[in-house]
């Protein structure tokens, strides 16, 4: 009884949201066709989709997307490794823990893109700088969540683990990491979102080298060639990838882990 009701409720929600989005899309098309704004600056949704289709077919947008994903993968991967090392050291040494907390307090509010000028000075332009910006943008949510997560594991679970003879790395691997997983997942979600933002923003500020650019560069270039439908197309691809990763990766993992384990607050 209850289950079906719940299902119905979530169905209603999805339907409601879907209708809303369709409504916004129709509104967009109507406003564009009414030509209240210059068509050059406000293209119709249909022209955006037609454009997107051609760019999908000619492979340009796919290549850009792959490159963006490569940049984000590299930056996020590095951030995960750094965050893991930092949070683990902070766990072992109270002194390092103080340092990490100080760093988090000072640097977390700083948007990754704000450090771009310095990164360009140090690393020059190009993929390495974008990766650095992504790294900087995504590392703080990761460290913060790992740090809190590792401390949220109940003391009795730790002792139950120690009782079984676990210590050091094994204790971290078998007890602390799964125990901190709800936080880790949140950290990864936030980090992923920030990595995307950083990659697109960084490319639009200095535009990576042409052939090596990702979606940010795509949008940047299209803007200068006044291909505004393509600019919107790039944005739509970013939105779709964000949605897809949220639904197919994060939610998939969440359902199979912390929701099954009863470790969510929901």
């Amino acid at each position: 009884m209850k289950v079906t009701k719940l299902k119905k409720k979530s169905m209603n929600k999805t339907l409601n949201q879907g209708l809303f989005i369709v409504g916004v899309m129709i509104l967009w098309e109507l406003v564009a066709r009414a030509q209240w704004f210059p068509v050059l600056l406000f293209p119709s949704l249909s022209s955006v989709f037609v454009n997107l289709l051609t760019e999908l077919v000619n492979g340009e947008i796919g290549g850009r997307l792959l490159f963006s994903l490569y940049l984000i993968g590299a930056g996020l991967g590095l951030a995960v490794v750094t965050a893991a090392v930092t949070a683990t050291s902070a766990l072992i040494s109270p002194i390092i823990s103080d340092w990490v907390q100080a760093l988090m307090a000072v640097l977390h509010p700083l948007p990754g893109i704000a450090v771009l000028p310095i990164i360009i000075l140090w690393l020059g332009t190009g993929p390495q700088s974008i990766i650095a910006v992504i790294w900087f943008s995504s590392i703080w949510p990761l460290i913060t969540n790992l740090h809190t997560g590792l401390r949220s594991v109940p003391a009795t679970q730790m002792e139950a683990g120690r009782n079984l003879g676990l210590k050091g790395i094994a204790l971290i691997r078998f007890i602390l990491l799964p125990g901190a997983f709800p936080y880790i997942l949140t950290g990864l979600r936030v980090a992923w979102a920030r990595a995307w933002q950083a990659s697109v923003a960084a490319e639009m500020v200095f535009g990576a080298s042409g052939g090596e650019g990702g979606l940010g560069w795509f949008i940047y270039k299209k803007r200068f060639f006044m291909e505004i439908p393509s600019v919107f197309g790039g944005m739509i691809v970013i939105i779709l990838v964000g949605l897809l990763v949220e639904r197919l990766c994060f939610e998939w993992v969440e359902v199979r882990t912390i929701r099954r384990w009863g470790m969510t607050s929901e």
Binding site: P154, T156, Q157, E159, N163, L164, G165, W261
Partner: peptide, 19 residues
Amino acid sequence: GPGIDRMMVFQDFEQLFPW
């Protein structure tokens, strides 16, 4: 130190591994 020749059962309900 701790060892499996002495196993502890705690009062609180969080001693099981939820995962």
